[in-house]
Each structure stands twice: as C-alpha cells, then as structure tokens.
C-alpha cells in the first residue's frame, strides 16, 4: 500500500531545476532509500514533501490527502516527521526540553513529562536529559534529532543522511534503531551516501540524478543497473576507446 506519493513533482530555483517531474511511491511499512550523486535533488525533494520548499508544480499525496505546499507544521501534524542534513537542534535547550517541545501535541498534559522521559530512555538519552543539546557529542546529537522527530508520533519518518559523520559502531546503532522503528510499524525514508547502510537497511531504493528518477527497485537490482553505475562513475567511454 502506498503511504506517500508524488506526481510530476517539480522544483526550480530561478531557472535551476532541482527536482524534475519526479514520481515517487513510498510503500507503507518499508524502509525506502533515496540515493544519488551530490546535487541530484534528494534533499530538495525531501523539502518539498515536508513543506520546507513549495514545489513549483506537481503534487504530494500523503494518506490520500493532498499536502502539496502545506506549511511544515501542518504536514508534521498529519504524521510526517524529519531530521536534517546539518543538525538543527534547539541548541540552548536541554535534551529533555528538545523532546518535550515535540511531544506536546501527542501527549496529554498529565502524561507529557512521563512520556518524554520514556522516549529519552528508549533512545538511550535519559542520562543526558539535563545537558544542553549543544554540549552533547555529535553522535548523540544526531540521535537526539531522531528522538525529537519520533516524539511527534509520525507515521512516516524522513531521515536526511542519518549516518553522516558517525563512526562504524554508531552507524550500526542507528541502523538497529531504524529497523526497530520499522518493526513497530513506522514507514521510513532515508537519504544516505553510506552504501553499506542503504543496501543492508532498505527494501526499496530509488536513485535520483539531475532531479529525475533514473532507477528504482530492490537493492540487488539497483546495484546492477547500468544507468546507476553510469551516474556514479560517469560514462566509461575511455574504456571504449
């Protein structure tokens, strides 16, 4: 079943086309990966689907509702949460407050304190609850951003490069975390350059280049797709010569 789909999604910035007639289908209950070279339009398509950018044309349908161009907070309330490529935490606020602000709409006043605490515990951040977000080590900051997004009780979670800057152990932990979300019924979309993570985590992969979809399918089929290889490695005409 499709949870989110885009129809001929198009975004240009003063003549520079970032997303070009993109048709995406995000299947419910799966982890979908979006990959592509730098500047392929991955983040911009995320932004269009989460309301940070208003698409130039085209549609975004989530749960049968047309959410094209809705403000970010409305889209979040409908059930889409996200993280950012460059961390955007509430830096001067404590770890606990970061989560509590997000949890507010999904917990009753009486349970807010308790629920926020439970979340932190689940993500292994409880010990740091009174630290200011900016004082956390980088890996934990990334984790906190995921915790904050999840605190809004989303049906669909967008992760923009969750493993960037993390070491191998941390990446492994993040992968476990994402899997556990999926197992509890969440749909996840991941942008990532770490092919190990993408290939091991995702059931479905979409490849973008120059704002267009050039391939999609299972990790296996994408890995062997000649167009994908070409996008990543460039045309191999030197070999032909």
């Amino acid at each position: 079943m499709t949870l989110l789909s885009t129809h001929r999604l198009h975004k240009d910035f003063g003549g520079i086309v970032a997303v070009n007639d993109l048709d995406l289908n995000i299947e419910k209950g799966f982890i979908t990966g979006i990959i592509g070279p730098n500047g392929a339009g991955k983040t911009t398509s995320f932004n269009c689907m989460t309301g940070l950018d208003v698409p130039t044309s085209g549609q975004v349908i989530f749960n049968d509702i047309d959410i094209t161009g809705l403000p970010t907070y409305r889209i979040n309330r409908l059930g889409i949460a996200r993280t950012f490529q460059n961390l955007r935490l509430f830096k001067e606020m404590t770890v606990f407050e970061n989560v509590r602000v997000a949890k507010h709409r999904t917990s009753s006043a009486g349970n807010l304190q308790k629920d926020s605490g439970l979340w932190l515990e689940k993500l292994g951040l409880w010990t740091y609850r009174d630290e200011r977000a900016k004082d956390l080590p980088y890996g934990l900051q990334k984790r906190l951003e995921i915790a904050r997004a999840m605190a809004t009780n989303p049906k669909l979670l967008f992760l923009d490069e969750p493993a960037a800057g993390l070491n191998q152990t941390e990446t492994q932990e993040i992968m476990e975390l994402i899997r556990s979300f999926r197992d509890s019924g969440l749909t996840v979309v991941v942008i990532e350059h770490d092919m190990h993570l993408i290939m091991n985590l995702c059931q479905h992969i979409t490849v973008l280049n120059f704002g267009q979809k050039i391939a999609e399918g299972s990790p296996e089929s994408v890995r062997n797709d000649p167009q994908v290889i070409e996008a990543y490695l460039g045309k191999e005409d030197h070999a032909a010569r």
């Binding site: 910035f13 003063g14 983040t43 932004n47 940070l52 950012f84 490529q85 460059n86 955007r88």
Partner: peptide, 8 residues
C-alpha cells in the same frame, strides 16, 4: 534579489 534560503 535572489531567492536564496539557508541550506537545510
């Protein structure tokens, strides 16, 4: 002016 926004 150009319509630039902070990169996210």
């Amino acid at each position: 002016g150009s319509n630039k926004r902070d990169k996210v």
